[in-house]
Design a protein around this nucleic acid. Structure first.
Length: 614
DNA sequence: CGGAGGACGGAG
DNA sequence: TCCCCTCCGTCCTCCG
């Protein structure tokens, strides 16, 4: 069993307390000496886990010093989960805990909470996930970090149902591992070829303009729009101005969105659409963006674990999580290296089927393509209908093609649809829903509750009632989606944690230094990219598959005999990210520019119908 | 003049 | 009848 080491700060120094052996005196070091201490303890054969207030306060400096750690407990992130989770009994007053932002300990009341009993360690089948075990807080703990650790252990211990406790432990471990991965992603960066990106920009926008000027292509398109609309002073970047001129020219539109423009037959429409698309590229990912976010052929952004309420990550700076497909050809492995690009195919509907135990839906996905499975089962007539119908079920769509298809899905897969419908009803009634591993949705706001209460009063007007109903359904769509998106995020986090762990082992056994080590380069909700030396690419691919199987088993151990793999992977090995695993993108690309582009990529889709079924 | 907020579009 | 969920970044306009 690993040792828990608690890191704390005092008087400009750092202390490391061995929680597993409370008799040992804490080690006290200056910040500059911490990396050496951490490296030494990481090398211990049984391993260690660092218990600290926030990964983002401590880990970047360690990474800069060339020190990587294996496990941590990020108390700030885990507290946010625990304080909202409905898996904790009502008696545990976690919802009254202060949040840890912006200063983690600013509002600390110094209360240790109830006595810190230590829950039994549970064998979760993977060293990564043994979050709780042996982590005894010192009885005389006075430091805040220790107190927080004790309080969280006590909260976990208060979960009477072992299955629930195990789920929360898994979630806290995955969340903490994600914090390490996020810091490493920032440190390692995504390999990005400036020259390639510059070529793309020049091809689409023209030569780099002086600061504040429009690229030549945009200037030409703007002139064309002005001519067609007979509006010589029109600035197409101004939404109100453009809308006014479109309407003056007889277009029946109420906005300038692509969605609405597309429905109009008018010569200006294709020009405006092209302008908007290229203007977006120039402003969001143009030369200024590259100067700011790309250094030495690495794109670096901050990743924010749980930046989304559902538990997904968000990013800060550079728009990392919306890296447009048109510029992904510039994401390019170093010489002698490859990108292993992996996509968890149709993750959310599969997660829904697993949560609901809907064996019919699991069976439909068992042959690899869930949407085609729906067609083969006779539920819908085309793959496209399967896709929009499923999205309608997940998002709560009631109108249009998507809304029309949902009842068909409900007849074929009543258990899956009942789960999301139940979540929607809970939200509409102002309740809280919880993911598979125990992350709960935020409660509805006071304003929301007031609106509902007022609308049900005797003197409520019709407009008031209608508005309240609309707000209720809105919140219901949120909670409906929350349980699925949130649980999918939990699967993805567990997956990434397993990948990270295996990459560390690979690096160690290959004897490579950190400059030759495969590393995570990108993580995008249900997709990840590993940058690896060519020689290790096959092992990386295998590691990614194993980790996916492990994640499925950790979340849904009872389903292994029903469907395997629960989540098939699309794997592409390539020099360039342009070759995304998603088939549609390959279609869109059409023209292949060079030999290192999509044509040279190896694309492998899991074949679940072979080996080890049943 | 600076910040808030709307509109839009990129990602999943 | 309701464009279907979650984000981020940019530009523009409005307001204090």
């Amino acid at each position: 069993m690993h040792r828990d080491l608690l890191l704390d700060e005092a008087d400009g120094h750092l202390t490391v307390t061995d929680l597993t052996t409370p008799d040992l005196a804490p080690a006290r070091v200056a910040p500059a000496d911490l990396p050496a201490l951490v490296a030494a303890r990481e090398a211990e054969p049984d391993g260690v886990r660092w218990v600290w207030d926030s990964t983002f306060r401590h880990y970047p400096a360690l990474l800069a010093a060339g020190v990587r750690i294996n496990r941590c407990w990020d108390l700030r992130l885990t507290r946010a989960i625990l304080r909202g989770s409905t898996l904790l009994p009502a008696g545990v007053a976690v919802r009254t805990w202060p949040t840890l932002e912006p200063d983690p300990w600013e509002h600390w009341d110094g209360d240790l909470g109830s006595a810190a009993a230590i829950p039994d360690a549970e064998d979760l089948g993977a060293t990564l996930f043994d979050l709780v075990g042996g982590g005894a807080p010192r009885p005389d703990a006075r430091r805040d970090v220790a107190a927080e650790h004790a309080r969280q252990l006590a909260a976990l211990d208060a979960v009477a149902e072992p299955g629930h406790r195990r789920r929360l432990q898994l979630l806290l471990a995955a969340e903490s591992s994600g914090a390490l991965a996020a810091a490493e992603l920032r440190h390692d960066g995504l390999p990005f070829a400036r020259a390639e990106h510059e070529a793309t920009l020049e091809r689409l926008l023209g030569p780099r303009p002086r600061t504040g000027e429009r690229p030549t292509t945009l200037e030409r398109l703007a002139a064309e729009i002005r001519t067609i609309l007979d509006a010589p002073r029109l600035n197409p970047d101004s939404q109100p101005h453009l809308l006014r001129e479109l309407r003056r020219n007889g277009l029946d539109v109420s906005s300038t969105s692509k969605w609405e423009l597309q429905g109009n037959e008018h010569p200006v429409v294709p020009v405006v659409l092209e302008y908007k698309s290229l203007a977006r590229l120039a402003s969001a990912n143009g030369w200024a963006w590259m100067d700011t976010w790309v250094r030495e052929d690495r794109f670096r952004s901050d990743y924010v674990p749980s930046g989304v309420v559902t538990g997904r990550w968000s990013s800060r700076g550079g728009g990392a999580l919306s890296l447009p497909k048109v510029i992904r050809s510039a994401v390019r492995a170093d010489e002698g290296w490859s990108l292993v690009i992996v996509d968890a195919a149709q993750l959310e509907p599969r997660i829904l089927a697993a949560m609901a135990g809907d064996t019919a839906m699991l069976e439909a996905g068992a042959r690899g393509d869930l949407y085609q499975g729906l067609v083969d089962a006779g539920v819908v007539d085309t793959r496209e209908h399967a896709k929009v119908g499923m999205l309608g079920a997940l998002y709560g769509s009631t109108s249009g093609t998507s809304g029309m298809l949902v009842p068909r899905l409900a007849r074929a897969y009543p258990r899956a649809l009942a789960l999301v419908d139940g979540a929607a009803r809970t939200g509409e009634a102002g309740g809280v829903v919880t993911t598979w591993l125990g992350r709960s949705s935020p409660p509805a706001s006071a304003a929301w509750r007031d609106a509902q209460a007022n609308a049900s009063g005797v003197d409520a007007g019709e407009a008031e009632e209608s508005r309240a109903r609309s707000r209720a359904r809105e919140w219901g769509r949120f909670t409906r989606n929350f349980v699925v998106q949130g649980t999918a995020a939990e699967w993805a986090l567990s997956w990434m944690a397993g990948v990270r762990q295996r990459l560390r082992v690979l690096t160690a056994t290959a004897g490579g230094g950190s400059d030759r080590a495969p590393h995570l380069a990108f993580f995008l909700h249900d997709e990840l990219v590993v940058h690896t030396p060519d020689a290790l690419a096959d092992e990386v691919t295998e590691a990614v598959r194993e980790a996916a199987a492990q994640a499925s088993h950790l979340l849904f151990p009872h389903l292994r005999a029903v469907v395997d793999p629960l989540v098939p992977l699309d794997v592409v090995r390539s020099r360039s990210y342009a070759s995304s695993p998603v088939a549609e993108v390959l279609d869109e690309l059409g023209t292949v520019e060079d030999a290192t582009g999509p044509s040279s990529a190896t694309i492998v889709r899991d074949d679940p119908s072979s080996p080890s079924r049943g």
